[in-house]
């Protein structure tokens, strides 16, 4: 793991001293703030609530794909520069001729975008605090919701890291990643399209929307986490192989 921390720190620094992370953060928080506002206004007019539907659940993706859509745009934008920019500018040559392993480079870069993603969600804890002032909040549900968000985000970010390694153009990396995560979403929609049978089972299993649905109810289904973990591992493994393959270009 030699070089991992150096790569991680450099990546964090570069993400936060350039406008990209800040622009994404502002857009993201404006969007989430608007969603939160409309959810609160909506629930304020309802006479009574059942146990597992409420503003918190709604915010974390229940009965709505708004959140998933946001992630499908946020995550690709976060990862697009990861490798594409280094290859376009040539800094990849300096990076890969330092005494570091490709695995350390890939993990350092990946964990930096995951950290940045988590930091972007951090201000939304305020929303939960606001709700707690006016009523009761089911804390375990909030925790599982954030875990679900991390799982979905980690998967999207891993796909984005892989796509960024496939091209020298940030724009192409962005579009490829959107294509992949949207493809994954469309597969999940199959749950509501296919008749009962193996196809429907697979679609339900792959559905990131259902994952948020579950986690926002407080249901931690280990199969979902295994899926996220497997997708992340697969994407990162492929990224390491791609980085390795540049030596043979």
């Amino acid at each position: 793991m030699t070089g991992f921390f150096a790569v991680y720190r450099r990546e964090m620094l570069s993400l936060w001293v350039t406008p990209l992370a800040w622009v994404l953060l502002v857009v993201f928080l404006l969007l989430e703030g608007a969603v939160f506002y409309s959810i609160v206004v909506h629930f304020a007019t309802l006479p009574d609530l059942s146990v597992d539907t409420g503003p918190v659940q709604a915010f974390f993706g229940q009965e709505s794909i708004l959140l998933l859509l946001t992630l499908m745009l946020l995550c690709p934008a976060l990862t697009m520069r990861t490798f594409a920019e280094e290859r376009r500018s040539g800094t990849i040559e300096a990076l890969l001729t330092a005494p570091v392993t490709p695995t350390a480079v890939v993990l350092g870069k990946y964990l930096a975008v995951v950290t940045t993603y988590a930091l972007m969600w951090a201000p939304t804890v305020l929303y939960v605090l606001i709700l707690r002032n006016t009523g009761t909040v089911d804390v375990p549900v909030v925790l599982t919701s954030y875990a679900g968000l991390l799982g979905v985000g980690a998967t999207y970010l891993a796909a984005g890291t892989l796509m960024s390694a496939m091209t020298r153009s940030q724009l192409v990396a962005l579009l490829l990643t959107i294509f992949v995560v949207f493809g994954l979403f469309v597969l999940g929609v199959g749950e509501y399209v296919f008749e009962d049978g193996p196809l429907r089972e697979i679609a339900a299993h792959l559905s990131m929307a259902s994952q948020m649905e579950d986690f926002s109810k407080g249901i931690v289904d280990s199969r979902r986490l295994v899926l996220d973990g497997s997708l992340v591992a697969l994407c990162l493994f492929l990224t390491v192989r791609v980085v390795d393959s540049w030596r043979w270009g």
Partner: peptide
């Protein structure tokens, strides 16, 4: 390296 690539930021 030839082009002296560095991180501009």
């Amino acid at each position: 390296p030839e082009a002296a690539p560095l991180y501009p930021e």
